[in-house]
């Protein structure tokens, strides 16, 4: 395994592995969120389960590490590739229609995803798992005071605000683009692809991205609609 990660393929391998982990986590997270639509109490108990427990903390650390690596290597690769592109650029460039816009703009989309994540962290994780870690058993949510483990209250609170709903939907759209390329690209980088599977995997990536993002969006919209119904 000497020097594998210093090679260009090795760097991509890191992107591939970390990306795959993150996408799997998203799948899990999305499934968990769906529960909130079905029965908020169940969702809260999952939140409690994933609070300050050793397995949840390890999981969080691994995820954070993976995420950090993904961003770090995205930066390294982007700089590396910019250098390879050379100092002079084309006056005219046409991106062929067979080439997806997302594939050409993964870094920019990634930044949007990361910014969205910051918002998400400040609204949820910081007041939930992190608050618990600090030993707080109550956090301020607007004017109310709630337990860090009552996730459904968080959802209900933030997604009653149309600004947050729009922000989250934009974020999810960026996420869709990122995954629609990242999913099959990760497999291609590992070498798990061929002429026949190439179009199939590209299609599967779109299905998968849609599934994830629709799942998340469903929660956002469901709680927004619920908030409208509740107040009227």
């Amino acid at each position: 395994m000497t020097n594998v990660f210093t090679s260009s393929i090795g760097k991509k391998l890191i992107m591939s592995i970390t990306g795959t982990c993150l996408v799997l986590f998203l799948l899990f997270h999305m499934s968990m969120n769906i529960v909130a639509i079905i029965k908020p109490e169940w969702y809260d108990s999952i939140c409690a389960f994933l609070g300050v427990n050793w397995y949840a903390i390890i999981g969080t650390l691994v995820l954070a590490g993976g995420f950090g690596l993904h961003i770090l290597f995205a930066l390294i690769l982007t700089l590396y590739n910019r250098k390879a592109r050379g100092s002079s650029s084309y006056l005219a460039t046409v991106i062929p229609k067979q080439v997806s816009w997302a594939s050409q703009n993964m870094f920019v989309i990634g930044i949007i995803v990361a910014l969205g994540l910051l918002l998400h962290f400040s609204q949820f994780w910081y007041k939930m798992q992190f608050a618990e870690l600090l030993g707080n058993h109550e956090v301020q949510l607007g004017e109310a005071t709630v337990s860090p483990t009552s996730g459904s209250a968080f959802i209900a609170y933030y997604f009653s605000n149309i600004l947050f709903v729009v922000a989250y939907l934009i974020w999810l759209a960026a996420l869709w683009l990122h995954i629609s390329h990242g999913f099959w690209s990760a497999l291609q980088t590992i070498g798990w692809n061929n002429e026949i599977w190439l179009p199939r995997l590209k299609f599967a990536a779109k299905i998968f991205a849609t599934l994830i993002c629709l799942g998340f969006a469903a929660v956002v919209i469901a709680f927004y609609v619920k908030s409208l119904l509740d107040c009227c």
Binding site: S8, Y80, A84, R85, Q104
Partner: peptide, 16 residues
């Protein structure tokens, strides 16, 4: 790598 070519990000523009 040594000669300064970039890493593949699977855009597929090359095959087009």
């Amino acid at each position: 790598d040594e000669l300064g070519f970039g890493a593949c990000t699977n855009t597929g523009a090359c095959q087009v």
